[in-house]
């Protein structure tokens, strides 16, 4: 095995902004977001594909950014929690989480917001069971999930009103 594997240059669009990075292939997508692009809203919880704190959207779909090499996201559009606000205003899902107390310590919240965004993007009026299924990959140690469920229902209402 070579001592230093050849770095790879990749292009991403992160929260609408194009960027190019040259990285060692073993670096994870979450590391590129946090360390190279300084987008520290995406959190590392378990680092083992369990907790979902690192969830981001890749081409519109929720993925665990701790379980992807950055090189696998070459050419992709990534949305992180930093991309949810517009012109300094919180987006509708963020507002709903604040209003419904859908968080306590907040560590898992960026991941939950992105999982909720995938759900509501494809299913604007989800059933309770569909909301539960959509966030099954996001662990929250504080809330007991009840207010998270409320927040996502509220977000659906906000988004329906436009």
């Amino acid at each position: 095995m070579p001592d230093e594997p050849a770095p790879v240059t990749l292009k991403l669009k992160v929260n609408g902004k194009p960027c190019a990075l040259t990285v060692e292939p073993r670096r994870l997508l979450v590391e590129l977001l946090r360390e190279d692009l300084d987008l520290t809203g995406t959190h590392v919880g378990c680092d083992s594909s369990y907790c979902g704190a690192c969830t981001v959207l890749m081409n519109g779909r929720a993925v665990k950014s701790c379980t992807m090499f950055g090189v696998q996201a070459d050419g992709a559009e990534i949305v992180t929690v930093e991309g949810l606000e517009k012109d300094g205003q919180l987006g509708p899902i963020q507002t709903a989480f604040a209003e419904a107390y859908g968080l306590q310590c907040g560590y898992c919240t960026p991941g939950l917001l992105l999982s909720a965004l995938q759900l509501l993007g494809s299913n604007p009026k989800p059933q309770e069971s569909e909301i539960r299924k959509a966030i099954a990959g996001n662990t929250c140690r504080c809330t007991g999930y009840q207010n998270v469920l409320k927040a996502i229902r509220l977000a659906a209402e906000h988004m329906a009103k436009g």
């Binding site: 969830t55 993925v63 990959g137 996001n138």
Partner: peptide, 9 residues
């Protein structure tokens, strides 16, 4: 299988 995120990838 697992959760939405894992099923997507």
């Amino acid at each position: 299988i697992a959760d939405v995120q894992v099923r997507n990838r």
